[in-house]
């Protein structure tokens, strides 16, 4: 589904990604782990098309199509979804209006008719229950005054509504207490499907107890230095990153 070859990317002239290679097939769940500053978030931003990052080399294809040629919104319509680490507020725009605009943009792209307000309300209410959000949230401004946990649940709710082909979860577990982590994980597990891939970016192993990945990759200094199965994450928890020849600080320095 997603194929990343020798991907290099930089921000403000500084190279962060230094040759990423990764193949993700439909139905698979991949976890990318790594110390701070290793380029995890950059990878997710680059895939989603954040124009603050410049791709200097390499290629990325989604089902054979060159992803890097597409605008951010086109990538989204092709099925790339990014659950943000820090979702931004849009004051005055209701969550409901925002979500309906997004869903209808996708539907239009697929040649389906727009959903009217009543139809959408019904759907949105159902999905909000899946992530344990009070439907009253739908009427509030996008992320306006949401707690950290509410923002994360809201992100997962959007993924459930938009039904992407590839869901990229950027540190979705950060700042969550154990109950919220369970709710969010349930939401993500509900996303798992044969025709969908999930790419999780996380600093901590604990998320992987709830959402069990098929593959785990370790990112350090802008490169994938080690790949393995579920057991790699457990090993990292036990032994840290040192045995792979990386230290957190070192990695941070090389990326900055």
């Amino acid at each position: 589904m997603l194929s990343i070859k020798n991907l290099h990317a930089s921000v403000e002239g500084k190279e962060i990604l230094k040759g990423i290679n990764l193949e993700i097939k439909a139905g698979e769940v991949h976890a990318i782990m790594g110390p701070n500053g290793s380029g995890k978030s950059t990878l997710s931003q680059v895939l989603a098309g954040n124009e603050a990052f410049e791709v200097t080399e390499g290629e990325v294809t989604l089902n054979g199509e060159n992803l890097l040629e597409l605008e951010t919104e086109e990538r989204a319509r092709e099925g790339i979804f990014l659950a943000f680490q820090y979702p931004v507020e849009i004051p005055g725009v209701s969550n409901l209006q925002f979500l309906r605009t997004a869903v209808n943009a996708m539907r239009q792209h697929k040649g389906e008719g727009e959903m009217n307000a009543a139809e959408f309300m019904k759907l949105a209410k159902e999905v909000s229950k899946q992530v344990d959000l009070d439907p009253a949230f739908l009427k509030r401004g996008v992320n306006e005054g949401f707690s950290g946990g509410e923002k994360k649940r809201n992100e997962i709710m959007q993924a459930l509504l938009l039904q992407p082909k590839l869901a990229i979860l950027d540190e979705t577990d950060s700042g969550l207490d154990i109950d919220a982590l369970q709710v969010v994980s349930n939401g993500v597990n509900a996303l798992r499907a044969e025709d969908r891939a999930i790419l999780m970016v996380t600093h901590y192993q604990r998320l992987l107890n709830h959402i069990v990945p098929d593959y785990v990759h370790v990112l350090a200094g802008g490169k994938i230095v080690k790949s393995g199965g579920r057991e790699l994450a457990l090993e990292l928890e036990e032994r840290g990153y040192g045995w792979l020849g990386i230290k957190d600080e070192e990695a941070a320095n090389s990326a900055n």
């Binding site: 919104e73 989204a76 943000f84 849009i90 605009t101 938009l162």
Partner: peptide
């Protein structure tokens, strides 16, 4: 903000629709 625009576009919303939505929200 760039972040607001990126969020909207990442959800498949056209940039001009995003600006208009953000401005309308501001004027609500």
């Amino acid at each position: 903000s760039d972040e607001q625009m990126f969020l909207c576009r990442q959800r498949g919303i056209e940039p001009e629709q995003a600006v208009s939505m953000i401005v309308n929200g501001f004027c609500k």
